[in-house]
Amino acid sequence: MLLQNRDDLFAVLRQLNLLLVEDDELIRDSLELFFANEGCRLEVQASAEEGLQLVRVRDFDVVITDFRLPGMSGLDFLRVLQDMQPEAQKILLTAYMDEEVLAEAFRLGVHEFIEKPIATEDIEEALSRLIRRRRPDKQPLPEGV
């Protein structure tokens, strides 16, 4: 089976376009550095509005967004994204697992939830599960994977 270890995961991730929408500068910067260090392309945006501007012009394979954002919420952002890029895999970050939010997220086809405080292991596991699930679907992945 693929993705037995971190190296396999990042080997796949390096071929994907990743987007992070997170208003907390610390999380944004540290995740950006973390992925950059693994040689992955992670675009970062501080708000849903800025994130939308980007998804209008570029396709993403994985979109990670915080739930609580200034202005438009992470859920509303995912709702618009679902219309524009239904193939994108969605991960929601949240500090509190509110049942109402969870139900709405499921309805929008959110694939993974990560509860704060985030550890890199949580992100790696979520991404691994995402990619494992995608593989049998024979969805076209970028060449070389």
Binding site: D24, L26, I27, D29, S30, L31, L33, F34, N37, A95, K116, P117, I118, A119, T120, E121, I123
Partner: peptide, 13 residues
């Protein structure tokens, strides 16, 4: 939890 997340991720890097 936000700054804690920052610490966790930074430590991993």
């Amino acid at each position: 939890r936000n700054p804690l997340s920052g610490i966790n991720i930074s430590l991993a890097t």
